[in-house]
Amino acid sequence: MRNSRKVYARPDLCTGCRSCEIACAVEHSASKELLSALFESPPPRYRMDVQAVNGVKLPVNCRHCTEPDCLFACKSGAISKDLKTGEVQINLAKCVGCWMCVMVCPFGAVSPDMDRAKATKCDLCTGSASGPACVQSCPTKALIYGNADEFNAWRQP
């Protein structure tokens, strides 16, 4: 899983503009258009959360953990980890909204979508040819989609 790819952030480059949150919500909307997405009901959910504490801006989303607590806690068998790509995904057709994953994610990166009774988290924009929308949208390039080596090389000063 050394090559597994996910979204990494550099808080030092993040200005807290939340473009990633908007791009995420639009990508996960029914219309995939900003203007129409604004009026969708239930509203589309973003799975990237820019948290600002004491001047530090920290974009937080699913870490696709090596030992995923959400998967261990999932009662419905909806959560799986691909041992080749490292991706942790929720099969929404099976998710019953029992909130076990919400209860154990150390990062608070799995959210309860009460409108749809589904657990929601970063799915790495599976199926999108251009990769994760948050990464595309970031004006300061504070996010990358890559593997651990690429991330470590990128964050070295």
């Binding site: 504490v53 920290l58 937080v60 953990c65 090596t66 030992e67 150390p106 608070g108």
Partner: peptide, 19 residues
Amino acid sequence: DFARVLPLVKVQSEAFGET
């Protein structure tokens, strides 16, 4: 939110050893 926990991750690194 997790960002509030981040200072603990830095200071008490032995408890937060995971990658």
